[in-house]
Amino acid sequence: MVDATPAPLVNPRAGQVALRWLLFAILALFALFYLMPLFVMITTSLKSLDEIRSGSLVALPVQVTFEAWRTAWSSACSGIQCEGLRPYFWNSVALTVPAVAVSTLIGAVNGYVIAQWKFRGANLIFSLMLFGCFIPFQVVLLPMARTLGFMGVAGTIPGLIFVHVIYGIGFTTLFFRNYYVTIPVELVKAAKVDGAGFFRIFWSIFMPLSLPIMMVTVIWQFTQIWNDFLFGVSFSQAGTQPVTVALNNIVNSTTGVKEYNVNMAAAIIAAFPTLFVYAVAGKYFIRGLTAGSVKG
C-alpha cells in the first residue's frame, strides 16, 4: 500500500495547477481537523489553570508548566483515591502484556491447525469463532461477571486477562488463519515426507514465516486490550482498574475544581502507548485494521 504509486488520474497540466493547489488546501484543512484535538490536548496540558481560563483554546502556552503532568501521573484524584494514573497505568501493562502474548500464541496455533491441518469440522469451528468476534460484548457481560466470581478471580487482573484472552482468540485465530492459508499446503507435505511432525513443522517452518502477521496480531491485540473500557469497568474493582477506567474516573471526578490541564495530561498518558506503537509500526496497525474488517 505504501509504495504503490499509480499514475495520477488528475494530470498536472498547466490549467490544472490551480486545481492541484485546491486539492492540497483541502487535504491540509482535513489534516488540521484531525490534528487539532491532539494539539489542544498537548497545549492545554502544558498550561496552568489560570492561563486556561483566561486564554483561547488554541493559543500556545505562554508559561509552559509540567505541573499538570506530575499531578496526572502521581496525585490526581479519582473518587476517593488520589494516586494519579500511575498505579492504573501499571495495571494496564500488567494485564495487557500477558493477555496479548497468550491470545496471540493461541491464535497462531489455531490458525495453523485450521489453515494447514484441516480436519472434518475445522471449518465449522472457524465459522463459529468468526461469528463470536462480532457479538456485542454486552451479551456476555452478566454471565462473565458471575463466572469470574465463581472462579474466584472477580475484580482481579488475572480475571481481566482471562476475559481478554477468551474474546481475543477469535480475532487472533482469524489473522493467523488468513495468513497461513496463503502458504501452499505442499510445504507441510514436503516437511512430512522429510520426517517432521506437527510441532516441528510449526516451529521450524511456520514460525520463521510469521513475523509480519505476528506484528499485526500483537499490535491489534495490544491496541484493543489497552484501549478497552467495557471489560475494564465491568470486571475490575478499586485497585485493579486499567488506565482507561482510571482516566474516565479522574475526568469525571466530582470532587474539587475541574483541572482541565490535568485531564488532558492524563488522557495523553493513557493514549501514549498505543500512539507510540502507531508511530513506530503504523504499517502493521493499518494492516490489522483492514484485515480485521475486510477479512481476506
Binding site: 484535538p37 491532539l38 489542544v40 482516566l247 488532558m264 493514549a271 500512539l275 493499518i286
Partner: peptide, 22 residues
C-alpha cells in the same frame, strides 16, 4: 495518511475526554 488515521489508535475514552474539553 498517518495524520488521518491516528485517532483510530486512541481509546474512545481519550477521544471522548479530548472532545469534551474542545
Amino acid at each position: 495518511r498517518t495524520i488521518y488515521l491516528y485517532p483510530m489508535a486512541l481509546s474512545m475514552i481519550v477521544t471522548g475526554t479530548a472532545w469534551k474539553w474542545i
